[in-house]
Each structure stands twice: as structure tokens, then as C-alpha cells.
Design a protein around this nucleic acid. Structure first.
Length: 585
DNA sequence: GCCGTTTTCGGCCCGACTGTTTTCAGTCG
């Protein structure tokens, strides 16, 4: 049975094959956009298809809806098979080599019969590429470097790795002379869970200062390879395989540039359309007046924006926070004056999920309390693993009760600083049972139920396990609902329509697990929870004190899902959180 | 192939950089 992801992947491959065939770029983009839409979809295509709702999805028209239905019913796509009969799929991998595009890939295929990266590597090493038209010794060398780089990193990298690494580079550049302003742009700024590359912008008063900054950038010790080194733009590959792009621009263009390079592409397209409706062409440099045919009027004065607020004001909109810029309704919401008042890190008062040395954490209850207090938390819940999770030293009922005595003791010790409550992260067992009996759960302040084992069970089983947990009156929250782990582990296969309805009906909380390897639930599910009126909680799931610092990743995910502070349980002040817990008893 | 309160046909992404050119094509974001 094909999943959303499978179908998105097939469309993505169709897009690549069409590009290799030299089809119109717009047809290629149509498949590309459809793949992207499906990838970000919070619901099952199967359910949407049953409702005849496929054509209502953005970027899905009659043709692609039919193709989706074909895949859902037959598990295959004839169009895709026809394409692969014409063009070897191995060329897609070759095209993914940095510096090799569709034209070069086809050239290697047609001239030398190359269909795999391995064959291309041998040909390049044997010096067979340099004599092809448009190639030379340098291009051949670049192909070899591109293949080497390919093996160093696999696709997108967790924001938990990319963000600190990007911030360190930015901080270094900000210390250089003549740098007026600097920022991270791209998907890092929008808080995406995975990052393709790092985008850095630096503003100067005079472009004469740019080359020195570029020279410094490409000479930094973390640079593994220089991919490009120009006057206004340079690209490097870091030791960890990530690519970082730096652009230097004059301060006058800061707003348009930051907006442009923050994306998303889809959001930018909408921004350009809004500008055109006002007779202006928008790019990273400025707004330029255009004539009725859309041609730029060269002698008309351009409009420069040195802030993003000014860019949005120019198209008649309020500032739109970067996390919302996905063309997922944010433009329309801004036009109606109904943008959400997004949650911020400052709104977070508590942390409802963390581990100690009782199970697989490395710090004591008291240490975790002290560390959380040092980070400004007003309350925490200690939630160690339950008895069946032997690998994590899960707590027997006796140890759980003994732990409660220590939690109460620490709570008293910390009085006036931080409140410490006692909970559990209880396993939802493989057979669907819960790992502690109800009379034990009744003694706890806060109960999380989570999936940790048998994650590859079929949809019915997983769904039933989740429903069992949701329907138990003592369970307060479902932890990391889909149990995905970036990048290795796919989310569990459950009927989320049914699960969300049940969560809503039973008044349970859904966790946004802030660990950047999890970010679970993800932004699309957050948005669905917000729309349905399901309460959320953003927790670090800390296994050591430093993990308490992961909260910002959870907040970014919440913001990407349009969550406001009022949608999130652990923004409540302590007394209200206590009232909430009491109301559940 | 999608999309539309300027259009159901004719738009959709274009600028910087590189390497091979001999004025430009291919790639990338």
C-alpha cells in the first residue's frame, strides 16, 4: 500500500525524468510542486481521495489527481514506468551530483552510456569526460569532487545540527569590520526540521567592503571545499558535509534580500504576484515599477526596503513571521488582519517531560530541577520510563512509588523557586495494554503515554494502541505521537483522522517533542490540532540537563503550526497548570 | 501540468557564478 511519501517520491522522480528529457521547465515544476504538497500534507491521500478532494489540493489538478488515484488503486503509475523505459533512473542520482544537471547527465549517458554514479566516477577518473563538448579538465575534476561530496552527506540535515553550526559562522562574520547587520535566512530561519543548506546574509554600507568578507568566509577553518567564490556570493562545504552560502549586500537592500532569501519559494511567488498587482516587480534587490506588459521601466525610480516590515508594507501586508512563510494561507490571513499571535519562547513556563537517573537520564531529580529553574522554568514534571522498557531501565511500580517520595522531597526543597511534579512516560505496550494499572496511574500528577516498541505494526494495530491510551482516563498526554526519528525512522502508520478525533473527544494533550531529532508532532499536525481545538504541550524530553536547551526547536515547530500561547498547556502559569491537572482527576 | 475577482489560454524564475566559450550554456538556489 503506497503512502503519501511513496507517492510524493514517484512524482519527484517523474519531475526529474521530465527534466532529463528536456521537457518544459513548467511541466517539471508542476510535478515538483505536487510532490512537495503531498509531502507536507497532514492527512492521508487515501482519505482525501475517498472524499473526491484531491483536485482541491494546491498544485494538484485533474491530471495529477487521476495519477494519484491510479497509484492508490494499482500501487503503480504507468506514466512513471513509461518514463523509466525511456530514461534510466540512475541518471537522477547523477543529476543530484553538485555541478551536474540534466544536460550534463544526458550528455554522459548519450555519449558514454553512463547510467550510474559509479560508472561516472570511473569515467571521470579515466579522463574520459574532458573531451566531451562543453567539458574540460576542470569540469571533470568538479564531477569527481561532487561525487566525493555526495558520499559525505545524505540529503537534508537536522536543524539541531545545522542551526548551531550556522549560528557559529554568523557570529564570526558579525565580528568582522564594516559588517552592519547579519542574519541566517532560508529554511533555518523558517524553522524547518531538516535543512538542505545554510544561507547567511551580511549587510554593509558599501559593496567595496564585500570582497574582504568573502575572502574571510572561504578561508575559515571549518571549510572543507570552496564551491564558489564571487564578489557578492560565495559557497562553501563544511567539514560535516553541509553547504553554506554567504551573500553580502548593501544595507539599503536588507529588507528585500532577507525576505527573498528566507523563502519559501512558494511564499516568494505570492509576494511577487502581490507586487505585480501593484505595478511593481519584486526581486532580492528592490521593487521596480513595470509597464502593463510587466516590463521593468528602466528610468523609473526603484523602491528600496531596508527592513522586511517595509517590504510587506509595500504590498499592503503586515509583517509575516518567517515560520509561516510557506504559502499555506498566511498571505490570506495577513490580508484579513488575522495572522496568529504566535507563541514565543518567553511564553513557556514549564516542561512536562524529562528523565532522570531513575531510568535512562544522567542527572538526579534535584539536578534537573535546579537546571530547569536556571533556565527560567516555573514548574517541571519528572517523567521516567515505565517498567516494560527494560532497555531504558524502566521503573517498576515499587521504584515509581519510591521516586514519588523523592520528587515530593525535592519539590519541598525547591519551594519558592520551581515546582516539581511527579509523572511517568508510560509505554503503550505492543499488545495495546498500558504499562501501569489504573490504581498506580491515579497516584501520579501527570501521565504521558508513548509508543516506543513495535513501531512497524500495521495501521489497525498502531491505531488501536493509540486509542487505548487516549481512552484511558488517567492518561493526560500522548508523547511524540508518530515516534519518528530524523533521519532514520519513519513515522508510525496510524489512522490519524481517527486518532485526532479521539484526542479531541477525550480532552487529551498532544506533545510537541522539542528534541530536534523528533519534532513530533510536526508542524502540519500542530496546525490540525490548533484548528480542532486540541491542547498542545511543548516539552524537551530531556535526558540530560543540556537537553533542556532544546525548547526553542519545539517552539519553532509550534509556530510553524500557527500555535499561539493559549493553545499550549505549559504556557499556563503554575497555579493554572495545577488547576488543569486537578480538573483532570 | 497548474492556475485564474485582470485570463479557461498563456502565463509560470531569474540573477550570480563557473567554465568553456569567443559571446554563452549549464547549474544552482
Amino acid at each position: 500500500m503506497l503512502t503519501n511519501r511513496d507517492i510524493a517520491d514517484i512524482f519527484e522522480k517523474c519531475a526529474n525524468l521530465l527534466q532529463l528529457k528536456g521537457e518544459s521547465i513548467h511541466r517539471y515544476l508542476a510535478y515538483q510542486r505536487a510532490a512537495e504538497t503531498i509531502r507536507e500534507l497532514p492527512r492521508d491521500l487515501r482519505a482525501i481521495s475517498a472524499e473526491k478532494g484531491l483536485v482541491d489540493l494546491p498544485n494538484i489538478g485533474k491530471t495529477l489527481a487521476e495519477k494519484i488515484d491510479e497509484m492508490l488503486t494499482t500501487g503503480k503509475l504507468a506514466f512513471y514506468e513509461k518514463l523509466t523505459a525511456e530514461i534510466p533512473v540512475g541518471l537522477i542520482d547523477i543529476m543530484n551530483i553538485n555541478g551536474v544537471g540534466p544536460k550534463k547527465a544526458m550528455l554522459f549517458y548519450q555519449e558514454l552510456g553512463i547510467t550510474t554514479v559509479e560508472a561516472l566516477k570511473s569515467a571521470a577518473a579515466a579522463g574520459k569526460l574532458r573531451d566531451l563538448p562543453g567539458m574540460g579538465a576542470k569540469s571533470e575534476q568538479k564531477v569527481l569532487e561532487g561525487i566525493a561530496s555526495l558520499s559525505r552527506h545524505t540529503g537534508r540535515i537536522s536543524i539541531g545540527i545545522a542551526l548551531p553550526s550556522a549560528q557559529a559562522i554568523l557570529d564570526e562574520l558579525l565580528r568582522l569590520p564594516n559588517v552592519l547587520e547579519g542574519a541566517l535566512a532560508g529554511s533555518i530561519r523558517r524553522g524547518k526540521p531538516t535543512i538542505g543548506d545554510i544561507d547567511i546574509l551580511i549587510a554593509v554600507a558599501d559593496m567595496a567592503h564585500a570582497p574582504a568578507i568573502m575572502d574571510y568566509f572561504v578561508a575559515m577553518p571549518i571549510v572543507a571545499r570552496i564551491l564558489g567564490h564571487g564578489e557578492t556570493k560565495s559557497s562553501i562545504e563544511l567539514q560535516n558535509g553541509l553547504q553554506a552560502d554567504l551573500r553580502v549586500l548593501v544595507k539599503q537592500k536588507w529588507g528585500t534580500a532577507l525576505n527573498y532569501f528566507s523563502g519559501s519559494k512558494e511564499h516568494n511567488v505570492r509576494m511577487r504576484q502581490l507586487a505585480l498587482a501593484k505595478g511593481l516587480s519584486l526581486n532580492e534587490h528592490a521593487f521596480s515599477p513595470v509597464d502593463a506588459d510587466g516590463n521593468i521601466l528602466e528610468d523609473a525610480p526603484k523602491i528600496y526596503c531596508d527592513t522586511e516590515e517595509a517590504v510587506y508594507a509595500q504590498v499592503g501586508l503586515p509583517f509575516i513571521p518567517p515560520e509561516l512563510r510557506e504559502d499555506a494561507g498566511e498571505i490570506e490571513a495577513a490580508q484579513r488582519g488575522e495572522l496568529p499571535n504566535l507563541i514565543t519562547l518567553n511564553d513557556i513556563k514549564g516542561d512536562l517531560h524529562m528523565h532522570t537517573t531513575y531510568s535512562d537520564g544522567v542527572a538526579s531529580i534535584q539536578q534537573m530541577a535546579e537546571e530547569a529553574y536556571a533556565r527560567g522554568r516555573q514548574y517541571i514534571v519528572i517523567t521516567d520510563h515505565s517498567r516494560s522498557l527494560g532497555i531504558a531501565n524502566g521503573l517498576s511500580i515499587e521504584r515509581l512509588l519510591a521516586q514519588q517520595a523523592e520528587v515530593r522531597h525535592v519539590d519541598a526543597l525547591m519551594y519558592g523557586k520551581i515546582r516539581v511534579f511527579h509523572g511517568t512516560e508510560m509505554d503503550i505496550n505492543a499488545d495495546g495494554s498500558l504499562d501501569y494499572p489504573d490504581d498506580v496511574l491515579a497516584k501520579l500528577d501527570f501521565v504521558i503515554a508513548s509508543l516506543h516498541v513495535s513501531l512497524r505494526q500495521d495501521r489497525d494495530k498502531i491505531t488501536q494502541r493509540l486509542l487505548n491510551a487516549i481512552q484511558n482516563p488517567h492518561v493526560d498526554m500522548i508523547g511524540h505521537l508518530t515516534a519518528r526519528y530524523i533521519p532514520d525512522r519513519e513515522p508510525v502508520d496510524a489512522d490519524m483522522d481517527v486518532v485526532f478525533d479521539s484526542v479531541k473527544a477525550h480532552g487529551k494533550v498532544l506533545e510537541i517533542n522539542a528534541n530536534p531529532r523528533r519534532l513530533d508532532i510536526d508542524a502540519s499536525y500542530v496546525r490540525r490540532a490548533v484548528d480542532m481545538g486540541i491542547l498542545l504541550a511543548i516539552n524537551t524530553d530531556a535526558h540530560q540537563p543540556s537537553h533542556l536547551d532544546l525548547m526553542p526547536y519545539g517552539v519553532m515547530t509550534a509556530r510553524r503550526g500557527w500555535a499561539e500561547a493559549r493553545h499550549v498547556l505549559n504556557t499556563y502559569p503554575t497555579d493554572e497548570f495545577i488547576k488543569w491537572m486537578e480538573s483532570k482527576r
